[in-house]
Design a protein around this nucleic acid. Sequence first.
DNA 1: CAGTGGTCTAGACCACTTG
DNA 2: AAGTGGTCTAGACCACTGA
Lengths: 223, 223
Amino acid sequence: MDRPKYLQIKQSILEDIADKEPNTPIASEREISSLLGASRMTVRKAIEELCGDGVLYRDGNKGTFVADEKMHKNTKPIILDDVSDQSTFKILYFDIKSDGEEDVLKNLEMTHSEYFLRLVRLVKTQGKPICVEEIFVPRKNISDEQLGQLSKFLDLDHLIATVRTKQIFVPILVPTQYATLLKLKIGTPIIRIDNLLYEQNGEPHIFIKSYYNPTLKVIEIST
Amino acid sequence: MDRPKYLQIKQSILEDIADKEPNTPIASEREISSLLGASRMTVRKAIEELCGDGVLYRDGNKGTFVADEKMHKNTKPIILDDVSDQSTFKILYFDIKSDGEEDVLKNLEMTHSEYFLRLVRLVKTQGKPICVEEIFVPRKNISDEQLGQLSKFLDLDHLIATVRTKQIFVPILVPTQYATLLKLKIGTPIIRIDNLLYEQNGEPHIFIKSYYNPTLKVIEIST
DNA sequence: CAGTGGTCTAGACCACTTG
DNA sequence: AAGTGGTCTAGACCACTGA
C-alpha cells in the first residue's frame, strides 16, 4: 500500500469535480466504490475528509454535492498550509546551538542553555520567492533519525492538520539580509508571521518566523 | 438503533477520562471494542471524533492519549470583535460621495457613479489609539433611518457574529495623515487590515480599512 | 419503489513502537 | 514478539428522500 487508497480516491474525486459548479451532485458512494474498485467504507472515508475540507457537502439522504468554495470557513492556520503545498525549499542556513534570541526562547519555553535547531530557508512557489522562514526546534523535540531526514521533518503539511497554532502578525521593514532573496527593496514594509505550533499535549513544538513578500503572497483570511 | 452506538462509546470514553490527567493513555481500540461489545471500526469512529474535538490525541503507533484541554482556545473570527468591545470612537470625517478609489469600488462591486458613505474614525481602548478605521458603505445599503443613527449602524458587534468576512493583511508604512493620531513616527511599518463584510446573500455589505497601531494592538490568531 | 447516506460487523494485513 | 494505530474489505440493516 503505497499511498493509502482513500487519498487516491480523494484526488480522483477532486479531479472529477474540478470543473463542476457548486451544488452539483457527485456520484454516489456505491457508484464510486465499484468504479474505483474500493470498498464503500474506503470511499466514505475519502468523501468525509473532503466534506471536512469544505470541498463537498452532504445533504441528508439526497446525496453529496460540490460545495461553494467561496463559503470556505478558514478555521485552519492561515498561511502555512498552501505554502507547503507546491513549493520548493532552499536551505540557506542550518545549525544547532544554544542561547538564542529572547523571543525564540520565550515562545519555545526554553532556557538559555538548551540546544535548538535553527534553520533558515527560502520558500519558492512557481519560481517566485514567497517567503523566508526561520525555523526553531528544541533539540529534544527531534530524534537523531529525524535530524538525518530534515526535509521530511520540515514537511509541515502533516503537522498542520493535527496541531494547534498561534500566529502573530508583526509589521516590519524587510530585514536587509533577506531583501535581496525576496527581491524587495531595502525599506519595504512587510509582514512577519510568528507561528507557534503546539503538540497535542500543550507543549510548544516548533517556532517559525515567516517573512512574507507582500507583492507575491497576499495574506488573507475568510470566515 | 436508538442512539448510534459510536455516540454511546464517545460518552463512555468521556466518562472514563473525566478524572484523568492530560497525556494519560486510554485503553486501546481493541480493548474498548471487546469491552463494550462493538466492532473496532465503531470504536475508531468514536475515538476519531474525540480527537477531532480535541479531547484525545493519537501518537503514532504508541496509543491514544488524553489531550490537554487548556489548549482549547478561541476559534473565533478576528480582530474586529474585541476592538468594538470596550472602545470609544471619534469620527474624524464623514461624507457621501461617488467615484471612490479603485480598490474600494472593486471590493464593494460598485460602479464609479454609485454613491457611498465614507467615514473615518479613530478607535481608542483605555485611552490608547488602537487604530484608524476607514469605513465604506454603498449608499443603497443604508436606509435613511440608519443614516440618522450612524453610531448604531456602525456598532459592528452584532454584524460580526452572523456575517461572513474576508480579511486581507497589508503591510504599509503608516499614512502620514494618521501618524500623529496613532502616535507613531512617520515611516513606522504597520499592518492595514482590509475587512470585507458580506450579507447573508453573498453580496458585499461594508468595507473597512483598519490601520493598526502595532505597539498597542498585537494581531494574533489561535486555532 | 429504488436509491441515498448513516451505521455497524468481523474479520484482515501493514508499519511502527516497545519491552 | 506483542501490541498499537492505519487501512481496507465485503457484506449488512436502517431511516430517509424522491419519483
